[in-house]
Design a binder for these strands. Structure first.
Lengths: 331, 331
DNA sequence: CTGAAAGCGCTTACAG
DNA sequence: CTGAAAGCGCTTACAG
């Protein structure tokens, strides 16, 4: 690999001049510039981003910490981040935590030492202390999807509203006994979805039917098992609301196997949809959250924060998207 | 951020001694060591991986270049890579190319300059020259899913066999007019799937029904549009084989909308399945490829190559997995 | 307009 | 067993 030194030697200039020519950091005589460019081309020189990063105190990399990128809204989100980051000149380092706090801690330690300039995280909420530490050491952090910590910027959807509206919608379609398949209430979005569900039902005077969350971390199985449990408990169930669309896919499968007609006997809707809802054999009514866009937005906020004057007040931004109901065939 | 210098000062030793104490790179007196560790703890020192990387000429990072991580076999694959990489002490940098050669080139340039130690790529095959360049500059490369270039190691599945077996299977189920929904033949796996399809049909003396590949890069739409085109051309169609499972999902939807019963009138199978096939309302028969495992394997091979003596012959490994047929409800 | 020098934070021969 | 020095490849005040 050719270095800047090689380029400088070939162009008969000092490395500092070569550096200036390449970075347009101060005026360089056109002839000199031309010689430098020629040398770069001849040697097919590529600057060493590590050295650059070390010298400049930043490495143009952002770390992304998500539970999983497989079959979930986090895939689109991550893609939005990566594409926006590349546009802004950053690389994206990815970590999957599977929502395991230990794995999350590992990821965070590694990212911190790797000198990422910033972090985008959908956290478990169990490592808030570590996150605060990392932020204190000068690394910007933006939370996505989950705002587990009010002191850090976040890009989320209004989950309470989603669930509340979801119930109102299902009721308008005639449902009276609506089950909820959700996730761990330690994670804010699930908690808020439950609250929205609770508030809407309380207002209407209907009873709650909440599936006991399963221990495993498999959305599909959650939906499948949850449906069976809910129907065993309450055979009058006429609606099921799930937190994620893959849980909804599990519901569909369970209902089919039990011979329960949908949407005729039981209506189904999901509170976080991505594109898959519209592709199903029986397409699923969902409250869609703009995951790709949220990824882009989080990246922009992060980059802004990273470039902000460190002396200025650390301003924290909380962006809340409103998800939109997409009616399809399951309701 | 505390630096090694700060640690050394606090422990009253030279930075070189501090470095040796932390890296166990030569004997250090236990008392000294203890002082160094105490200082590390007190300052909550974290080594700067950038500086370390610059000095040692490697940065413990591998780059991953895939078309998309959303709704495809590449999500599981990438997850396999990331988890294995972390285990082996590497970070994972991700790039999505959307199978656009320009975007791919951008990613590769960036990864090269970023001094990644190695690359795992599912390439378009349009940047082979650049890849050779990168490899020449000392960065190890392993191809996954697609072996576009015989001179570089690869981890793939036997796609010809998959398609060939798929046809034999569909025929055993009574199909005589089998359509194929595939992708661009510039990409080896699609080409080989076509060849397997072709060879099996030729052997049996049946005619081919290949859907004209659509221009857009949307598996679902491919499957949906392809099905409509195939059925318009040949109303006798009684089987459809797709390259990917999301294409198969599009087929299901199109058949449902046309009122064609499956599997009764038309049987469906996909040649690359991941977990979603088993979760569908009508679960899909698929030839499953071990994507997660393939990601892990590719990472292991890459790390081996990176650690190999650079003087030794560059040995190239080609790993071929055999996909396994999983019978479900669409056949 | 360009060169010489210092330094980012670390590691590693070289002495002793 | 430990220190002093050089250097990884770059950038950036400081001169001139």
């Amino acid at each position: 690999m050719a270095t800047l030194k090689d380029v400088a030697r070939l162009a008969c200039v000092d490395v500092s001049t070569a550096s200036r020519a390449l970075n347009n950091t101060s005026y360089v005589h056109p002839d000199t510039k031309a010689r430098v460019y020629a040398a770069v081309k001849k040697l097919s020189y590529h600057p060493n981003l590590l050295a650059k990063g070390l010298r400049q105190g930043k490495r143009h990399t952002i770390g992304v910490v998500v539970p999983t990128i497989s079959l979930s809204v986090f895939a689109e989100l991550t893609q939005g981040i990566e594409i926006e980051a590349r546009k802004l000149g950053y690389e994206t380092v990815i970590c999957n935590t599977m929502d395991d706090p230990i794995a999350e801690k590992e990821c965070l330690d590694r990212l911190r030492n790797g000198f990422e300039d910033g972090l985008i995280i959908a956290s478990t909420g169990e490592n808030n202390h570590l996150l605060r530490d990392i932020r204190g050491s000068g690394i910007s952090i933006v939370q996505v999807v989950r705002d587990q910590n009010k002191h850090m910027s976040s890009v989320v959807t209004d989950y309470h509203e989603s669930a509340y509206k979801g119930i109102k919608y299902l009721v308008s379609k005639g449902c009276r006994h609506i089950g909820l398949i959700n996730g761990s209430k330690k994670i804010i979005p699930y908690l808020e979805r439950y609250n929205g569900y609770h508030d809407a039902l309380a207002e209407l005077g209907y009873e709650e039917n909440v599936a006991k969350p399963s221990a495993q971390k498999n959305y599909y199985q959650d939906g499948y098992d949850g449906t069976n449990r809910l129907l065993d408990q309450n055979p009058n169930l006429d609606g099921i609301m799930t937190a994620t669309d893959v849980q909804g896919i599990g519901v569909i499968r369970a209902l089919k196997e039990r011979g329960v007609a949908f949407p005729e006997q039981v209506k189904i809707m999901s509170l976080t949809g991505h594109c898959i809802g519209g592709m199903l054999e029986t397409s699923m009514t969902s409250i869609e959250m703009p995951s790709f866009e949220m990824g882009q937005k989080a990246t922009q906020i992060l980059v802004d924060e990273m470039n902000a004057d460190p002396e200025s007040i650390q301003s924290v931004q909380h962006i809340v998207y409103h998800a939109s109901l997409v009616e399809r065939e399951t309701t």
